[in-house]
Amino acid sequence: MTYFLTQLANGLSYGLILGLIAVGFVIVFTSTGVLNFAHGSVLLTGAYLVAILHDPIGFWPAVVVGILGAALLGVLINAVLVRNLAEPNPGTAAILMLGVDILLLTELTRRIGNRVLPIGAPWGADVIAIGGVTLPTSRAIAAGVAVVVFALLWYLFARTDTGVAMRAAAADGDTASLMGIRLSRTGATGWALAGALAAIAGVLLASFPAPGVAPTLAISAFAAIPAWVLGGFDSVVGAIVGGLIIGVVTALAVGYEAELHVLGRGLGEVVPYAVMIIVLLVRPSGLFGRKEAVRV
């Protein structure tokens, strides 16, 4: 039982981080209609900034720089590239982001080399144990940070003008612009938010038990795609729930791999996608997605 609870705790904390990444996908998608294939390299950029700066300027200032840097990167990608597409549609935008991903990842790989850059987080390698259930302290902190970030997001979207404007723009951009809401600005805000969330997730993913920042960190953003799809493409809540589901399912699949051996080795990698496909079979628009309205 404690074993189960340990895996559950692991899964939930990991799921919350996945949620942070998935929310970034949702926000970029709803505010500018872009499937952000470069989300992973933005995440890596944020984490990389923290890793190289924590020594000279201290961890917390470095985190601030990392978050701002990733946010700025997002804004620039949107302003310089996405908004200047010759043929703006989701398909070309997605491929554009692949191009961006190639550029960012190549350059970061070159800079990082074969080092693993420590993130320099003050929480060390401790583990919390409550009644036999163990969880790395950093993971508990990560879960806490994620919950706080989600609360802030909720406040932003429900209580502030900017947030309401973003939701309005996502729901009906055409009408929102008639309210004086500049779609270019909500788009920029969306990219900035997504970048900031990615940087936070990057720092959390690079801290213990992970060793630090390495180029493979960028791939971890892909793990959030099933969470995003499963939650419904345009739902922030869905992304968080999706993250939790994927996190828990993955942790359990790994934890009970021995018992599930009939299904083949390496189950942890395929299970998130299997869950995603099953959910889509039952609910094609995901758990929390708006059903596409059929209008004539």
Binding site: Y3, T6, Q7, N10, G11, Y14, T134, L135, P136, R139, L205, P209, A210, P211, A214, T216, L217, I219, S220, F222, A223, T250, A251, V254, G255, E257, A258, R265, G266, G268, E269
Partner: peptide
């Protein structure tokens, strides 16, 4: 006690717990 992972798995908490178990 085998545990298969991929290069993408950089958080091995779940595997570590399973091994401890």
């Amino acid at each position: 006690v085998p545990q298969e992972i991929t290069p993408r798995d950089t958080d091995l908490s779940a595997q570590a717990s399973a091994l401890q178990q």
